[in-house]
Structure formats: structure tokens, C-alpha cells
Design a protein around this nucleic acid. Structure first.
Length: 827
DNA sequence: GCAAGGTC
């Protein structure tokens, strides 16, 4: 038997399909798919199935000096036990094995990891095949002419693993220990995250240091036969054209000259034709940028792309490549879209071109093809709105790359008035070219009428505008990812995760992201004592070293030892500064939790955590001052920059995944609750008989509202209400529950008919259950709804359910699948 | 529990 190993299940399935000519069947073993036909088996890994770590005696942060990690052993342990077990089981029965992981450095390392797992159980021959896209021709070609594993290239990857672990773990532990932050709130640093954070911190420093300068600009409206256009005053500044006037008196003088006359004489007209080339194929970074201009965060864009990839509508979303492979037949792919209600017309018009030639970008790599549609087209109703929008973007980008260039006509008109110069630049799209199929990039025109030299134009208005230079703009998420790519920080598959990590660690907040006080302190500490770890130079050096290892010019041990030596020097510097660094970090942590002055004693009000783990706002003067304010019970509080003017208190945001919301000023929220009175709406279903309990609309000091029993705390029956909006109690009654129907924001343009609060809560729970189920692997919205209908109304219900009876009840769901979900939930 | 890199 021959065993073929790929980097992921999806690749395993497609390779089996190609090599078996469709005859392969799938079986599951330990929850891992194995594809088989004849004497072949194909199994997909899940990226790295082993990971580097220190031996267990280094686990306790308090028992081990961080500096000891520098020379600690680094071991490899299985991280995906099921897959490792399946791989070994298959290897025992194999006569030969073929490594078919991705064709890039990390793929070579993943292949070598599989090789070592095979070697643990057998010494059968192991070969390596490489292909850049999973097409019939490439895959067959690769398997006809197998190669060997490139152990040097894999060693380059291992050097990266070791260096990242040792630097990251040692410095992370050092900072966390010095600031006494050992729980979930440790203080992390790393080769990629810290230089990325420094980009954000540096930009914020520039913004803070920015000193705006006043300047003036003058605009004039010119008229030709009733058709008006705008021209701008300019002057010669040492041979180049300048529009900004830095001196107020000079600006007034120019304005006076221009207003002293009522016409301008055209002195120069220049016409030019410009071609505007279509965009290049999408790699991950370009895709994220384009999705971001449609309003998607990097994380969201990638997760939708992942979904569209696994359902088969688009190619692999993690790629550096911007050149389509030779195998891609553009016209055949366009043909697939003919007849589609949304794309048919555009596809046909593209097919009418004399020649179909795709654009090419600068990056040509072997990893995967650029992102493009597969030709499989979903019905619009199968996808969510967001999924469809992203799918359409990918389709239209492909269309654009095979479309013709656009042509613009540019017209520049210079005129003189009162001894001063005015210019106007017009542009008109003559040939729309790719813009016709790709509406995302700007194609806005600016009309300037045709005029001749010597012509007189009347001036209808002159405006003197006073302006100020602006500070540099903050990086948005996609701009950050582009900059990371330029600097070589991270990879196509990790850059968006790095940003997410910076949010999770409390280093940045908002979009565009702004650094917290903690982030500033971490970057400052690193700049002072471990400059390399906040510099992109560390990655650049590592890349050079990895190239040397891959070329056989250096060994893994040499490179790793050299790096350990540098880290030892860093720790020499750090040794005596632990206290100083720790204090600074702690002050910053406190600053990030500070809301404003305590109205009772003048100390600061801080976000704190009770023994029970819930968050509240408490005075720093505790125990002398016992002033507190409550916070909502769900989510992690984040102190925003925005302040309440009445109380000098920062607003608070509660981070809770998709239920994140802005709580606002805790004092305002508490006062609102104090001023409101409970409004009784009907009987309490729990205790109406006997105790005669009633339900009322209540406002809590933590800012939330609910329908709860008037006998609270003797009866704790309650139903949630939305956080915001006026609540109207109507005179329509729900017959099942004897309760009035409620309307939120009745006077707004879009009132929300919430209905009976009990019915509403039941629907809400069902919806939540469906959403939770959809987050499980391989559960689409249809399956989730079927599960919910079958009584699986929460994740807990699924965890405790009997797999066989669910499989019997829900069509298209097997007991094995249910058991996989249960394993996933337990993990 | 630390990193960054795969993948879901």
C-alpha cells in the first residue's frame, strides 16, 4: 500500500479524486478522513500536527527564572493526537509513503514532521512531490516524477520555530513576572507581534508630536457658456508648482488680485490620454485590502473566504502568489459564468474580446494560485449577504484581471487673472475597460470644458480657504497588513491573526487601532532593553539566516546558538531593571483601567474585579472610600478614550464577541436606573398563583433592562430586554402569557415590534442556539436549524445528547458526525 | 499559561 500525506483534508480529497479518476472512497478513522482506492491511501494533516515546547519541568513561571529558558531543551510533541495516531497506523501498513504538503517552506517542515512520525514506526521509502496548484496536470506530473524531502529547507523552518519560542517565552515571562501579571493577563512579546505593535505606537507618537501649521488655499469658479468648473490658485516655488500659501498676508494679496478682475485668460491647454491598467490577481493581502474598503475587518474577510473555499466556490485564500498558473484557462472559467443571472452578461462581454490575457503581479510564488473563483457558482440564496458580497468581489476581481485597460482623457487648463495663475485638471473616462466589470475602484470624473488658448472665462466666485496641515493618519487594519507584508513581518496566513492577538492582549483598541497605555509601556521597555524584539530587523536577519540554512551554508544549530547568545546579552541588560520595568508596566495597566475622579473622595475610579470574577468600578481609595458603580454582567470591560462631560468619566465598552456593546458612562447608567420606576405589565408565570407575583419592566444600575418579578429576590424569574431604545407597552395582549406586546423605539423610522417578552425570549434562545451550532465544524445554517427543531436548543443539549438518536431524528446527520461535534465541544 | 506557524 502507498500512503500519500497532504497538508490538509481538502487537498487530500482533491488529490485522491484526481489520481483515482473519481473512484476513491472516503472512510473515517479517529475522526480523520482517509481516502482509498486500489493500493492507495491519502490522508490530510491539519497543518502542523506537532509543536515545539519546553520540557514540563519549565512549566511553572514562578519556579523558573526566564533566563533559564534560553538554554532549555526544545522538544516536539504531538498537538493533534488523532491525526498522529491515524498517520502512524496507516504508515505501519504502508510499503511506501509520499509527502504532498504545500510547496513552500512551512510545507516542507510539515512534510518533514510527517516523515519523522512515519520513521517512528517504519523505515519504508518516503518521497516528496511538489505542485503549485491542485490541477490534474500539475498533480499527475508531480507524482510521475517524485523528488526527495529538502531537509535543509525544513531545518530553516525549525530554526524559526526555536528562535521564536525561546525569545517569545523568555521575554514574555520576564515582563509578566516583573509586572506581577501571571493569570490570563500576561504581557506578551514576540518577533512579529511586537514590531507590529511598535508600528502603531510610533504612528501615535507622530500624531501626538504633530504641530499643525496654518496655510491658505484659493479656489475660483470659472464659467464657459454657463458651464462652470473649479480652478485653484498656484504659484512658482523654486521651479515647482505650489498651491499652499504659508503666509496670511501673501494669501490676502493673491485673493485681492483675483477678486479685482472678473475674468481669466486661458494661457495653456494640455490634453493627454492615459491608460489605466486593470488590477493584478488577488493574493491574501490584496484581497484583505479590497474587502476592507467594503467594510470588512481582516479577520471577517478571511473567515468568509475560508467558508467559500471549503464549500468549493473559491480557491485557497492563503497565498502570496499574484500570477495565475499556466493551467488556468481564463476563457473556460469565464464560460462557467455565462447564464448566471448576476454575472452572465459581464462574462459574455469579456468573452467577446479578441484576446483574453490576464494581468500579472510582481509576486510569483509556488505556494498556491492567486485567489480566484473555481467556476462553481452558488445560488445567491445559498449564501448570507456578506458571503455573497465577498464571493462577488472575488469573481469580479477575476473578471477585472482578464478585462481590457480603461482609457482616461485628461485636460489641464491654466489661466491668468489679475496677474495670478489658476489651474484646473479634468478627467473623463473614455473607455471604461475593466471598470465595467469591477465597480470597486474609483472611476469618478471631473468635468472641465473644452477651451482654447487665449479664451476669456468669467470668474463667478473666488474663495480663500484657511486650512491646517494634518497629522499623519492612523494605520487601518488593511494598511497595517500591507505594511507588515512590506517589512516581511508574519505570513499570509498569520498577519490578520496577529492583529487580533494585539486586540485580545489589551494592546490596541478601536478601528483604526490605537495603542493602550500598556502597549506604550511594553514598546518603551523593549526599546530600552531588547530593541531587536520590536524591530523588523530581527525578522530580516532571521530570513537571511534561514536562506543560509536552506542553501547549506549554515546549520540550524549555528543559527540557533547565535540567536541564544544575543538573547543572553539582552538578559544581561535586563537583569537589574526588572523592578523599574515592572513599576512602569503596572502604572500603565492602572492607567488603562482608570475612568475618572471619584465623586466622593477625589481619588480615581478604576475597573476592578470581584472575588466572584465579576467586574465593577471601584475607588482607588479603598478601603477608606467604598464608592462603587456596577458594570454589565456580560463581557470584558474596556475603557474607551471618549469621556462623559458631565462626570469626567471615560466610557466603557463591554467586549463579548458578537455581543460586544458600548456601555457608556457608568455613572450616567446608574443615575438613569435610580430615576426610573418599575412598570408592572402582568402576572409572573412562576409565582402568580399563591404569591401573586407580577412582572415589571426594571432598569438596573448596571445599565441593563429586564422584565422581572416584583417579588425579587424571593422570585428571580426574569426576561431580557434590549439595552437601548424607548420601550412602549401596547394594549395588544399575548393570549398564551397574559402579557402586553412591547415595541422598542415606537417613534423611530424603524420601530422594533418585540411582542410578548416571553415569546420573544423563547425565539431569542432558539436563534442563539442555531448560531452557536453554526460555529461548529461542518455545521451549515440548514443543519443547525434542523438540529434546533429536533430539540437541540443549546450547545449543552448537544453535548449531552445521544448521538444515535440524533442521527435517527435529523436527516443528513450521522452519529459519527455528532460524536465529532461532542469531541469538539469537550475540547 | 509564553511565540509564530500551520489549519477548521
Amino acid at each position: 500500500m502507498e500512503l500519500i500525506i497532504t497538508e490538509k483534508d481538502n487537498a487530500a480529497r482533491r488529490i485522491a479524486e484526481i489520481l483515482s479518476e473519481g473512484s476513491a472512497s472516503a472512510e473515517r478513522r479517529n475522526g480523520v478522513n482517509v481516502y482509498r482506492w486500489g493500493g492507495k491511501r491519502v490522508v490530510g494533516l491539519s497543518g502542523h500536527v506537532v509543536g515545539v515546547d519546553f520540557p514540563p519541568e519549565y512549566n511553572d513561571w514562578r519556579d523558573v527564572e526566564p533566563v533559564e529558558l534560553i538554554d532549555a531543551d526544545v522538544t516536539k510533541e504531538a498537538t493533534q493526537e488523532n491525526i498522529v495516531a491515524t498517520l502512524k497506523h496507516l504508515a505501519r501498513k504502508a510499503e511506501s509513503a509520499v509527502i504532498a504538503t504545500d510547496y513552500d517552506r512551512e510545507g516542507e517542515l510539515i512534510g518533514k514532521e510527517a516523515y519523522e512520525l512515519i520513521r517512528d514506526v517504519t523505515d519504508v521509502p518516503v518521497s516528496r512531490v511538489r505542485f503549485s496548484s491542485i490541477t490534474e496536470r500539475e498533480v499527475r506530473g508531480a507524482f510521475e516524477d517524485p523528488d526527495e524531502i529538502d531537509f535543509d529547507l525544513a531545518a530553516a523552518g525549525e530554526a524559526r520555530q526555536i528562535i521564536d519560542l525561546v525569545w517569545g517565552a523568555a521575554l514574555t515571562r520576564f515582563l509578566s513576572l516583573s509586572a506581577r501579571q501571571l493569570g490570563d493577563d500576561f504581557i506578551s512579546v514576540g518577533r512579529v507581534q511586537s514590531p507590529t505593535l511598535k508600528l502603531i505606537v510610533d504612528r501615535e507618537r507622530e500624531i501626538e508630536a504633530f504641530d499643525p501649521e496654518d496655510y491658505w488655499e484659493i479656489f475660483a469658479d470659472l464659467q464657459k457658456n454657463g458651464s462652470g468648473f473649479e480652478a485653484q490658485y498656484f504659484y512658482d516655488d523654486d521651479g515647482s508648482e505650489a498651491e499652499r500659501i504659508w503666509d496670511e498676508a501673501e494669501a490676502e494679496a493673491a485673493y485681492a488680485d483675483l477678486t479685482s478682475v472678473d475674468s481669466a485668460t486661458v494661457t495653456n491647454v494640455r490634453r493627454r490620454t492615459r491608460t489605466d491598467s486593470p488590477p493584478t490577481p488577488f493574493n491574501t493581502t490584496a484581497f484583505i485590502s479590497a474587502a476592507s474598503s467594503l467594510g470588512y475587518s481582516a479577520q471577517r474577510a478571511m473567515s468568509i473566504a475560508e467558508e467559500l473555499y471549503t464549500t468549493g466556490y473559491m480557491t485557497y485564500p492563503r497565498t502570496d502568489n499574484t500570477v495565475y498558473p499556466d493551467d488556468l484557462e481564463e476563457d473556460a472559467l469565464l464560460d462557467e459564468f455565462v447564464g448566471s443571472p448576476e454575472f452572465g452578461e459581464d462574462a459574455e462581454s469579456l468573452l467577446e474580446q479578441d484576446e483574453i490575457v490576464a494581468t500579472e503581479g510582481d509576486e510569483e510564488t509556488t505556494d498556491h494560485p492567486p485567489i480566484h473563483p473555481t467556476g462553481e457558482i452558488p445560488n445567491k440564496s445559498e449564501l448570507s449577504e456578506d458571503e455573497w458580497e465577498i464571493f462577488e468581489l472575488v469573481v469580479r476581481r477575476f473578471f477585472a484581471t482578464v478585462a481590457e485597460a480603461a482609457t482616461w482623457e485628461r485636460l489641464r487648463v491654466v489661466s491668468e487673472a489679475g496677474g495670478r495663475s489658476l489651474k484646473a485638471n479634468g478627467k473623463r473616462l473614455v473607455e471604461p475597460g475593466y471598470h465595467a466589470v469591477y465597480p470597486y475602484s474609483s472611476a469618478s470624473e471631473n468635468h472641465v470644458p473644452d477651451v482654447e488658448e487665449g479664451e476669456e472665462l468669467s470668474i463667478s466666485e473666488v474663495r480663500l480657504e484657511d486650512k491646517q496641515t494634518q497629522p499623519p493618519r492612523r494605520y487601518g487594519q488593511s494598511r497595517l497588513i500591507e505594511t507588515m507584508e512590506d517589512l516581511g513581518l508574519g505570513t499570509k496566513a498569520t498577519r490578520h491573526n496577529t492583529l487580533e492577538k494585539l486586540y485580545d492582549r489589551g494592546y490596541i483598541e478601536g478601528d483604526p487601532p490605537r495603542p493602550t497605555a500598556l502597549a506604550n509601556a511594553v514598546v518603551e521597555a523593549a526599546e530600552d532593553f531588547a530593541d531587536r524584539v520590536v524591530s523588523d530587523e530581527m525578522t530580516a536577519q532571521l530570513e537571511r539566516d534561514m536562506t543560509r540554512i536552506a542553501n547549506g551554508e549554515a546549520t540550524l544549530d549555528e543559527v540557533a546558538d547565535e540567536s541564544r547568545e544575543m538573547l543572553s546579552q539582552v538578559f544581561e541588560e535586563l537583569r537589574n531593571s526588572s523592578e523599574e520595568i515592572g513599576e512602569h508596566l503596572q502604572e500603565s495597566l492602572k492607567a488603562d483601567k482608570t475612568l475618572g475622579p471619584c465623586p466622593q473622595c477625589g481619588e480615581s475610579m478604576l475597573v476592578r474585579r470581584s472575588r466572584q470574577g465579576s467586574y465593577f468600578v471601584g475607588c482607588d481609595g479603598f478601603p477608606e472610600c467604598r464608592n462603587t458603580l456596577p458594570l454589565p454582567s456580560s463581557g470584558e470591560p474596556l475603557v474607551l478614550d471618549e469621556e462623559c462631560e458631565e462626570h469626567d468619566m471615560h466610557h466603557v465598552k463591554m467586549l463579548a464577541g458578537r455581543d460586544t456593546f458600548v456601555h457608556g458612562c457608568p455613572r450616567c447608567e446608574a443615575e438613569k436606573a435610580d430615576e426610573s420606576e418599575d412598570e408592572v405589565i402582568g402576572p409572573c408565570p412562576e409565582c402568580r398563583d399563591g404569591e401573586g407575583g407580577e412582572l415589571a419592566i426594571k432598569h438596573l444600575r448596571s445599565g441593563s433592562r429586564l422584565v422581572g418579578c416584583t417579588r425579587y429576590p424571593d422570585c428571580d424569574y426574569s426576561l431580557p430586554l434590549p439595552r437601548n431604545g424607548d420601550i412602549e407597552v401596547t394594549d395588544e395582549f399575548c393570549e398564551d402569557h397574559d402579557l402586553p406586546e412591547l415595541v422598542i423605539d415606537p417613534d423611530s423610522d424603524d420601530p422594533w415590534e418585540l411582542g410578548c417578552p416571553i415569546c420573544n425570549f423563547e425565539e431569542y434562545q432558539a436563534r442563539n442556539a442555531v448560531q452557536d451550532l453554526e460555529d461548529l465544524n461542518g455545521v451549515g445554517s440548514a443543519t443547525a436549524e434542523k438540529l434546533e427543531d429536533a430539540g437541540v436548543d443549546s450547545l449543552d443539549a448537544l453535548r449531552e445528547a445521544d448521538a444515535d438518536s440524533i442521527a435517527g431524528e435529523v436527516q443528513g446527520v450521522s452519529a459519527g458526525q455528532v460524536r465529532d461535534w461532542q469531541t469538539e465541544l469537550d475540547a
